[in-house]
Design a protein around this nucleic acid. Structure first.
Lengths: 150, 150
DNA sequence: CCACTAATGCAACAGTGTTGCATTTGAAGG
DNA sequence: CCTTCAAATGCAACACTGTTGCATTAGTGG
């Protein structure tokens, strides 16, 4: 019974990992599962506190760093830095939907808000430059944090 | 002799600090001098290795952090995070010239290039949101780093 | 010149990320 | 099914960045 359910969500992550040409391990599957299920990029600390899924032992701190690195290396995850200087990771696929709109980062609470507006077209680049990613970030205070200020 | 030269560059930083309403100390003057002279935002580590100017002792690590915090608090310096997750500081005035154009960050060498193009106008924000800063960053490979790739 | 607060220096600590090395495990092949 | 081997894991220890507490020093205003 419990075996059958394992072939619903897990297997997709396993499949992605296998397709990427690296070993399929419990750690990688669990981490990629968590990243794909998350609505926002996760920090290492947040992932370390994962509920351990099906009674598995918690993932080792260092192993988690290496699992994340391997997922980034094979293109399944993306690595970015948040405003506090901490690395955050997201599943590669989920990022595609975020590429289409603008982010507002609150300097008060650190929250990230997705705005409806599309990012403007990138300007012309110098010869030889290759564009990989466009980031249009607005900084400021969100409605909650700005309420107290005059 | 050596005293007279101190009234050339230093005094402008001193003046700025005095005008900001905080105490004028050697540490703050030296740090603000360094920030104003730098062409790029400086990290804490880079500033700790400052040549110690006029034979002064090197600044204490913790004091440097507090000096930077105080300069940020009174609006004379700006604090940002680089791609490695390290805080970088810049003099407040020098940033104004950087606000007017787009940056290209090379994911290969970590270099930052200033493009001529102006950042596009920010989109409409939800009610209560207050905009402080607009960041339009492009990521990719610069001419040097992209040359090797097919 | 004095007094008082802010700033400094030192020590110790916390969080984040890395390295080395022995052990375990996934995947391939007999 | 068993063997084999590289890759992945777990553990310990470390490096770097940033912070906190507290005693001492040094600006600033009177």
């Amino acid at each position: 019974m419990a075996r059958a359910t394992a072939t619903t969500e897990d297997s997709l992550s396993s499949e992605l990992i296998r397709a990427a040409g690296v070993k399929v391990t419990r750690g990688r599957v669990r981490v990629l599962d968590a990243l794909r299920a998350a609505r926002q990029p996760l920090s290492h600390a947040e992932m370390e506190a994962l509920p351990a899924g099906a009674g598995d032992a918690a993932i080792d701190r260092v192993t988690l760093y290496r699992v994340l690195d391997s997922l980034v290396a094979c293109g399944l995850a993306l690595k970015a830095v948040d405003t506090r200087g901490v690395f955050r990771f997201s599943a590669a696929g989920s990022q595609r939907q975020h590429a289409k709109h603008v982010h507002f980062r609150c300097t008060g609470c650190g929250g990230v808000f997705c705005l409806k507006a599309e990012p403007p077209p990138p300007p012309r680049l110098p010869r030889g430059f290759r564009l990989q990613q466009v980031e249009f970030d607005l900084r400021g205070l969100c409605a909650g944090c700005g309420a107290g200020t005059s």
